[in-house]
Design a protein around this nucleic acid. Structure first.
Lengths: 391, 391
DNA sequence: CCTTAGCACTCGAGACAAATGAGTGCTAAG
DNA sequence: CTTAGCACTCATTTGTCTCGAGTGCTAAGG
């Protein structure tokens, strides 16, 4: 009983654990043995289930809020559940059609598409969703234009491989006219085009700019602003949707908890940083995308056989999230691709007791739809983007 | 007693009402007669105060949650308080310096400045704050540039009088090259430059574009996108800050109320629309700005004299806000100016029981600092902006 | 006539105890 | 190994009681 057999639980324990997590996700109440046998057609007595539950508890999968209450899943229990037990169904045709519809709309901007994707996820799942703009550090600079707005002010437009565009208003010396500005920007562009963003330094920009053959006094401020604009292209933005939905769930009946959660979510840039630091599965997309559908739903028997599927999403549960104030939450995240090496994250934040299966199926579908749309954007308008981007 | 004398309350009633609102703002507890005389040095017995309170109640300024509880201010009571009773102090030099500091930072963009202003307001007051991007409908188009990003995609940059810049990625026909695009955009710019945004229609754009002398098939999509971009320049954005702070106040201990509030705040565009539809004081800014300080704090005697000061801020209390879910809140809003006729709003949302005086002094100062900064932006870089903008 | 002391009354909040019931662990029999 | 049975635990609910802040009213006093 204390054996903690690493190779996993026997079938009955698995069944019971699944049933418990399912119930708890649904009711948010500690689940007791009697109720469990009633609700699920387990051919067992409550006493037997009690014994099994006791085992599961000493194995670390369950917890008891107090004696004489039912059990609730521990983080480990959820982990087992999402890794091996839950049943992920495909979306119904109606659901997927609805999502496709909402995403298909007008958009020519990655950000617009991301906003929508986030909105879809939030309304589909009923939890908080987020989308992080792509990380472009590894991407190549394709264009850098500077547009005179009025004397002393210019718009710097940074175009990256894969058609990502960022811009920024900057101050420039008053003495600079449109022509000089154009000379500078094309000098910089020529010098830097094709370089990775992360390899561009103030020095490289300065070197490039010097070809413009203009007095340093004029040049310096401009090239500095250009440099900053390039660097800022990699600033991450987060689109949050449906934050207030969390307040509907009983775990947030406590206002303090709700506040902690909201504060955590808004703590500047923390979430973006956290999500981007370990961006889950690297090289399975091809296969994932090739599949007509993500047909890797786990079925009852399948799981027993112990097949280890690589999953295109990542789930972090409770303690696994090392952010203050999010210890009662879970993240389900995945990546999307713009072009070849530019990736970003989308995800759902919910209570630990979230409906993982539904979230996973939705997020996988949104990921797919998003990638499709982004690819379409590329193929139509950015062909040289993907080529140029060193494979 | 039932006389409801329109001309206002006698001095003692005013004093008592002020004391009650002050106390209630501080404690969030219904205030009783005895406590009131204790806390404020009223030279009255509690019985007298009780009588006065009873009067104030029948006049509609106070409410009783239930018999045997103290009184709380009604919406009318708050109204009287903010209009005639509260004492607005100037900020301490330290506070104003701190605000100036936080706003002075780097910025060349209106939006950046607005974000910061909103952040300052939130952290200074402890409530939720918001900033709405300026309404530019009445503003004049100064430039319209189209920048080729890659075949089939372009960036449309719209520059308005007063140096407001908006841009947008659009699709264009693949066949269009950079040169043609430049011709189109300069044709449109020439044709529309100087027009008010609100006067620009698809027809005027088309007429302007036709001067480019390019085949219609190429032209049409581009001019349509140009048109949309121009129209979208007037889309309002809202920057919210400190939403979660509201959850600290006892009126939002109830999660449902908190949720309603959060939902209301995020309901798309509602707040922006609401704020912008009646943008308070129109023509007193000159004077306000001229004053060394907003020295119009209401002092005890002054108010009795019934001077009607025009106030550069607007307060909406409870029921006066016609937005679902905001009935327990108050808005304190004001306008800022970019150039001559471009205005936007900033404001604070708090519980009805908010510290109006502190909020007002902060918001006035932020407004002033914001206007200064924006003016500086204008004067330095956008001189022709204010000239061109028809006075 | 206004103010104030006094008093009876109201009513929510908090404390406490008892009842309820869902759930457990253990044991002994099948 | 399973299961019926039983004693036990403990959070939650319900009811009762008290406490106290607050009110309105009345009658006496300046």
């Amino acid at each position: 009983m204390e054996a903690l057999n690493r190779q996993g639980l026997d079938e009955r324990k698995r069944q019971i654990l699944r049933a418990i997590v399912d119930d708890y996700i649904e009711t948010a109440e500690p689940v007791g043995s009697r109720n469990l046998v009633d609700r699920h057609a387990l051919n067992l007595s409550s006493a037997t289930v009690r014994n099994e539950m006791s085992d599961l508890e000493s194995l670390g999968y369950l917890e008891q809020p107090h004696t004489s209450a039912g059990r609730i899943p521990s983080d480990l229990g959820y982990r087992e559940y999402v890794d091996h037990l839950m049943r992920v169904d495909e979306l119904t045709p109606e659901e997927s059609a609805a999502i496709r519809d909402r995403l298909r709309d007008s958009f020519d901007e990655v950000t617009e598409l991301l906003r929508k994707a986030s909105g879809v996820l939030a309304s589909q799942t009923g939890y908080t969703s987020l989308a992080v703009t792509p990380r472009v550090r590894q991407s190549h600079l394709r264009q850098l234009k500077m547009l005179m707005i009025e004397p002393g002010r210019a718009l710097v437009v940074v175009v990256l491989a894969a058609g990502v565009v960022k811009d920024r208003l900057v101050r420039i010396p008053d003495a600079l006219d449109a022509d000089m500005l154009a000379r500078i920007s094309s000098a910089i562009e020529e010098g830097l085009s094709g370089m990775r963003l992360e390899d561009i330094t103030l020095v490289t920009v300065a070197t490039a700019a010097s070809r413009a053959r203009l007095p340093e006094t004029l040049l310096n401020q401009v090239l500095y602003e250009a440099y900053v604009s390039i660097k800022q292209a990699d600033n991450l933005e987060v689109y949050l949707e449906g934050q207030h939905r969390m307040l509907e769930y009983p775990e947030f009946r406590d206002v303090d908890r709700a506040r902690t959660y909201l504060e955590a979510i808004h703590r500047d840039g923390i979430i973006a940083g956290y999500l981007s630091e370990d961006s889950c599965p690297e090289r399975d997309e091809e296969e994932d995308e090739a599949d007509p559908r993500f047909a890797k739903t786990v079925d009852d028997q399948g799981t027993t056989a112990g097949i280890r599927r690589r999953c295109p999403y990542m789930i972090r549960i409770g303690q696994e999230i090392s952010l203050d104030g999010m210890r009662d939450c879970s993240f389900v995240t995945t990546t999307y691709k713009v072009g070849d090496r530019i990736v970003g994250n989308i995800g759902v934040i919910g209570p630990k007791r979230m409906e993982y299966a539904r979230v996973v199926s939705n997020i996988q579908f949104v990921r797919k739809a998003l990638n499709e749309n982004l690819r379409r954007l590329m193929v139509r308008y950015g062909k040289q983007g993907t080529e140029e981007d060193g494979r």
